[in-house]
Design a protein around this nucleic acid. Structure first.
Lengths: 345, 345
DNA sequence: CGAATCACCGCATACGATTGCATAAGGAAA
DNA sequence: TTTCCTTATGCAATCGTATGCGGTGATTCG
């Protein structure tokens, strides 16, 4: 057992292998890399080298190749908050695809802030990676362009927030889904006072869902009550607080749509804490269909996205570029949403 | 806008800065690195260099320093499954501490398999990092030793699974907590047939909680019914399935302890699906206190761990070694568990 | 006035692996 | 015997940065 972790132990290098096998270091390199340049290698030499590799337990140092401009065998992923269940299947899917290609994944949280997103951009400039997967909320197209130019990486994003000609984008048809769901709330369930728990309009995705919500109201020729619009920060606590405000209104809404499940679950908590009932007193509609949506009582009616599929699509798009299988302009992949009717409406 | 992401654009290097500022590359290096070796730098030169840095938008390439044996400014973290809510606060805490030090974090899933854990070890041998944070289930002490010797990194682990003299370890007093909780189930709540939903004994943590469970039964002089012991794989689905088996018994248990909340929540689902009631027909006790534990109905009674605190402690321990503030033998930090009584018992 | 001192800066090497080019030995063709 | 090709291998430059050491011009001291 070693006695101290510092300073770093000198690793086993290719030169060590070469010395043990009595060949030059370049010969070792050629043998280990499948010998692309067609230079023949003697059988005996190859045997000696492979033997030396195993006895020394040699592993290549990935940083060396990286410095020479080779592949980094690393992906970087930016999400708002890895503690949000919505991202888990996405992160998992990306990691699973990455592992197929023997890639490692670096993950950064932004906490929904622009500063966090910019910090990520700087991180991948200082440490370039082969592929970048983004779930951006605040980055502008100029930011993305800078990212592309400075890193030269393959980039895929989630959402309709950015629309850069060189990046692949995965998005859900959330506006359509919201319109249909709200229309269903109105027509089939007879709700006429529907509350909205959203987020600041600095989130374009929040603004879009708000717009779709309003459009559905207008289409049904329903009045718009400004006091029924509350703002949260995507967390269940903020959803609970927003619902408390709505419930304290003289005329509370009969149904509430929250732009994500976490806030919807918080809203249900608030309703139940004041002794009222979901869905008879207030119906609750969420967005995302995270696993806890089926664990709460009543089970949450929500609009499902497919984060795992989205992650897979982004990762595959990135790898197609990394492996040189595709190099054209940015592609756009739609992963449809769908309404999951459970018990909370 | 650039036209293609490949081949990689040559980044702005220190040499470019040097050329623009009419100085040598080493001077630029000295100016940017706080000039440790005491060599004085002229005011005018410094100004010119800093100006060149900003006009070119220079960022240092972290890989170059890494190759020279400097810091990598990267942490690697190994968890079983990032989609398990228990790990989120831990991962977040690690990432937050890392960001304070301007470190990036690489995360790998092992899916609870030994192969996954070994793959992680190889990954950090091929790409050494300054610090490694592990939640190991299968790695032996020899594996950890190899990891230490080959990477030379600072290592912190969660759990009492490994006990290496050079690694810092964070653990909960889960055995005591389980014994106390089960004893409470027996004495205060009068349960005498208590089911157990565990995991394969290849998980030492599972074996330990099972042992504590048995010890509590023995201490209360209760008989042990082998048919009340079921095995899951940590997922809610497996908990649901295990509970179905227990419910189909001629004499089902009146209470069930699951070694994690996900399986406990699954168990509650199973009970409710056959029309029975938690806690009057079957009480359910979990372990972890993940956020969904307060969202299910009835709210889950469970033994709380403090994953965020655990993550912080591990990250801080690692950074103390990375920054040279500590270099002694492995330390052991206990983060106590506590019983959270809600409605499911 | 010569030498020592000082402030300031550049040269060159090293880190580990890849790769174009040179080279050595051996055999075949001229 | 010379030339030329094939086979098998080594040499050396390269990526971007840090750093030991050497060098230059100016100032100061004896």
């Amino acid at each position: 057992m070693q006695q101290s972790h510092s300073p770093r132990k000198r690793a086993v290098t290719m030169r060590d292998v070469a010395k043990l096998a009595n060949v030059s270091q370049s010969t070792v390199s050629r043998i280990l890399n499948g010998n692309d340049d067609g230079i023949p290698i003697g059988e005996e030499t190859r045997r000696r080298v492979m033997e030396a590799v195993t006895t020394l337990g040699y592993y290549p140092n990935l940083y060396a190749g990286t410095l020479r401009g080779q592949k980094t065998f690393m992906l970087a992923m930016m999400v708002a908050d890895i503690a949000n269940p919505f991202y888990h299947p996405m992160v998992r899917a990306v990691q699973d695809v990455a592992r197929l290609h023997r890639y490692d994944v670096m993950i950064a949280n932004t906490d929904h802030t622009r500063d966090g997103e910019l910090a990520f951009v700087e991180a991948v400039i200082r440490r370039p990676v082969d592929g970048i997967i983004l779930v951006p909320y605040h980055l502008t197209e100029a930011d993305i362009d800078r990212l592309l130019v400075r890193t030269g990486s393959a980039v895929a994003t989630l959402g309709q927030h950015v629309n850069h000609p060189q990046v692949d984008t995965v998005y859900g048809d959330d506006e359509l889904a919201v319109m249909q769901a709200i229309t269903w709330l109105i027509r089939e369930r007879g709700h006429r006072r529907i509350g909205f728990i959203g987020v600041t309009s600095s989130f374009s995705v929040g603004a879009r869902r708000r717009g779709a919500f309003l459009a559905a109201l207008r289409q049904a020729e329903l009045p718009i009550y400004p006091e029924l619009f509350e703002i949260g920060d995507w967390s269940s606590e903020s959803g609970e607080h927003a619902m408390q405000v709505l419930l304290s209104l003289p005329k509370p809404p009969t149904a509430v749509f929250a732009v994500n499940d976490l806030m919807a679950i918080g809203a249900m908590e608030a309703v139940q804490k004041v002794g009222r009932c979901v869905p008879t007193d207030v119906a609750v509609l969420g967005f995302d269909d995270i696993p806890p949506a089926t664990w709460v009582r009543p089970r949450l009616t929500t609009i499902a996205q497919h984060p795992a599929e989205m992650g897979r699509v982004m990762a595959n798009a990135v790898f197609e570029r990394v492996l040189g299988e595709y190099s054209g302009p940015g592609r756009r992949f739609e992963v449809p949403c769908r309404l999951i009717v459970r018990e909370s409406v």
